[in-house]
Simulated assay, not measured.
Amino acid sequence: MKTSLSEFELQEMESRAAAARPGPWKSWVEGRDFDGGSNFIQTGNGAERGEDIEMSRATVEDQDFIAAARQDVPRLVAEVRRLRALLNQTE
């Protein structure tokens, strides 16, 4: 498995995140976060609220991961770039 990320791969990740519905996304699990209804991912907040995402056959852990990825991926891409910039300054 390849471990290093090219700038092209980072750009692809960033593009996929930018193309997704606006965040933040939040995983709502029946019995954990509310009573009654089905599990779903809330997209956006307030005036930026989008349609909920409902999945079939996803585990709670899968749903939590997918919802968190909306926020996590852009932050991780930014952190990789920040760290690379620091490395480039010291070289």
Rank of each mutant, 00 (worst) to 15 (best):
24 P>N: 09
36 G>E: 12
60 V>E: 12
17 A>S: 14
70 R>Q: 04
69 A>P: 00
9 E>P: 03
52 D>I: 14
27 S>Q: 06
77 V>R: 00
16 R>D: 03
66 I>M: 08
70 R>I: 00
64 D>A: 14
5 L>N: 07
12 E>K: 07
87 L>W: 11
59 T>Q: 03
34 F>I: 10
26 K>T: 15
44 G>N: 03
68 A>D: 10
2 K>V: 12
1 M>A: 12
60 V>Y: 10
49 R>C: 09
55 M>P: 02
42 Q>S: 10
69 A>Y: 00
90 T>L: 13
44 G>Y: 01
11 Q>R: 13
83 L>T: 09
9 E>N: 05
52 D>M: 09
83 L>A: 05
43 T>A: 02
77 V>H: 00
66 I>F: 12
5 L>G: 04
55 M>R: 11
59 T>I: 11
6 S>I: 05
7 E>D: 11
71 Q>S: 14
89 Q>D: 15
22 P>S: 04
52 D>A: 10
75 R>M: 06
55 M>S: 06
69 A>H: 00
6 S>W: 06
28 W>A: 08
87 L>M: 13
12 E>W: 06
47 A>C: 05
51 E>I: 10
31 G>N: 13
68 A>P: 01
59 T>D: 01
75 R>T: 06
15 S>G: 02
22 P>Q: 05
69 A>G: 00
28 W>T: 10
70 R>A: 00
88 N>F: 14
38 S>L: 11
78 A>P: 01
17 A>Q: 02
24 P>A: 03
89 Q>E: 15
16 R>A: 07
70 R>D: 00
19 A>G: 08
60 V>A: 07
78 A>F: 01
37 G>K: 09
10 L>M: 03
40 F>W: 14
58 A>N: 07
11 Q>W: 08
27 S>I: 04
63 Q>M: 15
18 A>Q: 04
39 N>F: 10
71 Q>I: 02
53 I>H: 07
79 E>L: 07
80 V>G: 00
82 R>Q: 09
5 L>F: 15
67 A>K: 03
5 L>D: 07
70 R>G: 00
37 G>I: 06
80 V>P: 01
71 Q>G: 13
74 P>C: 02
29 V>G: 02
62 D>I: 05
37 G>P: 03
57 R>K: 12
81 R>K: 13
60 V>L: 07
46 G>E: 08
52 D>K: 12
60 V>N: 13
39 N>L: 06
53 I>W: 08
31 G>Q: 14
36 G>D: 10
66 I>S: 03
8 F>Y: 14
20 A>K: 06
60 V>R: 13
60 V>S: 11
80 V>E: 01
21 R>A: 15
71 Q>C: 02
13 M>A: 07
84 R>Y: 01
63 Q>V: 10
81 R>I: 09
72 D>A: 14
44 G>M: 03
77 V>M: 00
54 E>Y: 15
66 I>Q: 03
67 A>Y: 02
10 L>K: 01
75 R>P: 00
65 F>V: 05
1 M>S: 14
2 K>A: 14
4 S>V: 11
43 T>G: 03
26 K>M: 14
43 T>V: 05
3 T>Q: 12
43 T>E: 01
61 E>P: 05
41 I>G: 04
78 A>G: 00
69 A>S: 01
1 M>N: 13
23 G>C: 06
42 Q>F: 10
61 E>G: 05
21 R>C: 11
32 R>Q: 15
28 W>L: 14
9 E>Q: 15
82 R>F: 08
51 E>D: 13
37 G>H: 07
43 T>C: 04
